[in-house]
Amino acid sequence: MKRLLSSVTDGKGFDILLVSLPLLFLLAFSGLPLLYNVLMSFQEVDIFSLGRLIRPFIGLDNYRELFAAPEFWPIMWNTMLFVVCSIAGQFTLGLALALFFDTGFRGSSFLRGLFLVSWVMPGLVVGAIWNWILSGDFGVLNYLLTSSGLISENIFWRSDVDYSLWAVVLANIWLGTSFNMILLSVGLAGIPKDLYEASELDGANILQRFSTITLPMMRSTIGAVISLGLIFTLQQFDLFAAITSGGPANSSNVAQYWAWELSFRQYDFAKGATVSTLMIITVMIAAVLYVRSTRHEVRI
């Protein structure tokens, strides 16, 4: 112990101190709550025993009851739709914007910075904005659709079981597109321009250059963007709380919002912890994929 303290004080072990302090912070504020949540998923927990660590151990009963719940599979389907459609929309629009700004026209850097405004805004603020946009009576989206003749009457996006989930998907795509654009712009900037010039001299058109140069050279960046998008989308809670509250009739309910409802509305803390544990496993898989993609990028 004295040797460790002396190495820190004389500067030789300062790197150990820099690493150990963040690790202790993560252990105290992330690791312990995570372990506590996982432990709750294997216990019988009520509002009276919530503050105790020693509670009846019931094994996998919480998981069995959760899988047997009638709303489990519809909510899991909603979660999958929300994640897949959000990531696909964010990535497609982000890549299109990244390619557009990569042309380097005058003012492109300023406009690219403006797109980041949506990313830095709190989710509840974004949800409030989209509440106005998606309003069934005086929303901007209904006005644009009816003015263009695409719909004949207003759609109540937030309260219609057929559209409520897609309302949150639209808001989440708008929220995450700029982040995808910035990451993909960094990947585009790392591609040597002489490759495009050589392929253009060989007679390759824009689609051929995109498929043979852009996509292969950005494979690791694309993997990182999709992995991060999966992590952020599975953590999205604010938009559901602000726009639909999981309704109507669970039509827009997803796993992350359902976990909150089970714990803080129904006071079924064990089931809420069980849903959260399943999400933790999914996020950890996405994190592993992200680390693998970035490691591949470093090797290149």
Rank of each mutant, 00 (worst) to 15 (best):
L188C: 04
F232G: 07
V298N: 05
Y143N: 14
R265E: 07
A259S: 15
S108K: 02
I16Q: 14
S276E: 03
T214E: 14
Q208Y: 07
S252T: 00
I231L: 07
R3C: 06
G123E: 06
V126Y: 02
R209H: 03
Y163F: 12
A242E: 01
S41L: 03
F48C: 04
G149S: 05
R55E: 01
L134V: 02
I129A: 10
L23C: 11
L81W: 06
F25V: 15
S6M: 13
L21C: 13
G176Y: 06
A189V: 00
V254S: 01
P56A: 10
T9C: 15
N78W: 00
M218S: 13
E197V: 06
F57Q: 09
L60M: 09
D102V: 08
A28P: 04
L4V: 07
S252V: 00
N172A: 13
D61G: 13
I213G: 06
A255V: 06
L35M: 10
L262G: 04
W258G: 01
A171N: 04
T221L: 09
S159T: 14
P70V: 11
M1F: 15
P192W: 15
W130D: 03
N253Q: 13
R299H: 05
L17P: 03
V275T: 00
M1C: 09
G94W: 01
I191R: 09
S227N: 01
G139N: 00
I54T: 14
F105I: 07
G149H: 04
M80T: 15
I87F: 01
N180C: 15
L184S: 04
I129R: 01
D102G: 15
G104W: 10
V291G: 07
A128L: 15
T79K: 06
V168G: 01
M181D: 04
N205K: 09
T221W: 11
L228Q: 00
L134G: 02
L32W: 12
E197A: 11
G190H: 08
L21Y: 07
L50C: 10
Q256K: 09
A69V: 13
L145K: 02
V186C: 13
S30K: 13
L60I: 13
M76N: 08
V83D: 00
S86C: 08
W260S: 07
V19H: 08
F232D: 09
Q266I: 02
R3Q: 15
P216E: 12
A189K: 07
I206P: 12
L5T: 08
